[in-house]
Simulated assay, not measured.
Amino acid sequence: MSTSTGASTAADFDVRRHDSFGLRLQHALHANPVLGPLAVLILAIIAFSIVNTRFFAAANLSLVLLQVTVIATLALGQTMIILTAGIDLSAGAIAVFSSILMAQFCVKAGMPAVLALLLGFACGTAMGALNGMLVTRIKLPPFIVTLGTLTIFFSLNSVVSNSETVRGTDMPSLMTWTGEAIAIGNFQLSYGSIIMLLLFGFFFYALSRTAWGKHVYATGDDVEAARLAGIRTGRVLFSVYTVAGLLYAVGGWILIGRLASASPNVGTEYNLDSITAVVLGGTSLFGGRGGVIGTLIGALIVGVFRNGLQLAGVEVVWQGFAIGTLVLVAVSLDQWIRKVKG
């Protein structure tokens, strides 16, 4: 009988030890959402460098960063919206439409490049503000609002561009400047990537060190509690969508440099890609938890997986399968983390 009791005690100890590790992990990931994505990125880099030694070549790493620059910029704006428990399905549409407007201002209207660029940024900001107004004033769900404006902006994009691509050679050099690069040894760092990294640094500070950033998190965590605490949640939400529109327009400028043209026929996958980067980066779809550093890591995860699988000879369809599986795992992990107590 004493043997049975001893075995039971040992089993209980093992269960408590297992639960203790699970709880510690749950609390750690809740307190530091970036840890999970960072671990995935490091493991992916190690795995793909073993599968193909070309992965760590400077030229290939330059390509990975270049490929994720536009998506990361859009995902930055998407992050702030998702932090408020919203979502923006029009991110790619605003970016592409803004790029077309910039090109048309230069080529068709004959405006100076700086003026065309500023007007393009203003148009992107206005599109984001429209989303914000419909969400805050008309009280429409963000999903429905941005689903509608997605279609509207892509339709206007086709009308304004007449479905024609504007070549980079027809535009002033400032419009395609973001596609130029500086050499760091064999590594090529584009000006678009530098702009993207600077934006991430700025908004990391804004979200973590300013009253506006704290209000964004509070609104996403519990909008009613934030309102009762004196936060003007309507203004916060409007500002988030407006700032996101500006970031999408900057992404449109970077896109022109990336393609060396302004094409109305790109960007259909940018909306989902930006959301994917945010989710993989550990930002909760329910709002109030996450950050821009995680989003940058999430965008890099997407780029590393696609590039690594391509080097490994995996077909495109299975690359999409792998990214989709990662998203499901990330959302499931988020649900588990949200159950943490105290």
Rank of each mutant, 00 (worst) to 15 (best):
M196W: 14
R17F: 08
V216C: 13
P112F: 05
L198H: 08
V278D: 12
L237Y: 07
A218S: 14
I194F: 09
G303N: 12
R235K: 08
V107M: 06
G303K: 07
L101W: 13
V68A: 02
N186T: 10
S62I: 05
A95H: 11
L101P: 05
G22S: 09
T165P: 05
T276M: 02
L118G: 14
G320M: 07
I293R: 05
L189Q: 10
N157D: 05
H215I: 01
A113R: 11
I256A: 08
A75I: 08
T151D: 06
F238W: 10
W177P: 01
G201E: 09
T283P: 15
F97L: 15
L76T: 11
L76G: 07
L117G: 02
D19P: 03
A206L: 14
L197F: 15
P142T: 08
A225K: 04
V329C: 09
F305P: 08
V240K: 01
L326E: 10
L246K: 03
I94G: 07
Y205H: 11
L207Y: 09
I323R: 10
G179I: 04
R258Q: 13
S332Q: 11
F321R: 02
G230T: 05
E269S: 15
C123L: 13
S261C: 06
S239F: 09
I231K: 06
R167Q: 13
V292E: 12
W177C: 00
G320N: 15
G294E: 13
L296R: 03
S193E: 04
V145E: 00
D12M: 06
F321M: 11
V302I: 14
L119D: 09
L199S: 15
S284T: 14
A93N: 06
A249D: 01
L43Q: 02
L130A: 11
M133C: 11
W336F: 03
Y270G: 08
G168C: 06
I152C: 01
I194K: 02
I184M: 11
S155A: 13
L255M: 10
G185N: 12
A322H: 04
Y217N: 00
L333Q: 09
V68H: 05
T242G: 03
T165Q: 07
M102Y: 08
F153T: 00
T210A: 01
P264Y: 12
A47C: 06
T165F: 02
Y205W: 13
L118Y: 09
P33T: 00
G252S: 03
G110K: 06
Q335N: 14
V64H: 00
I152V: 05
G320E: 09
N271Y: 11
T242K: 01
S90M: 11
R306S: 14
T165N: 01
A103D: 07
A103M: 08
N271V: 06
L101V: 15
G179Q: 10
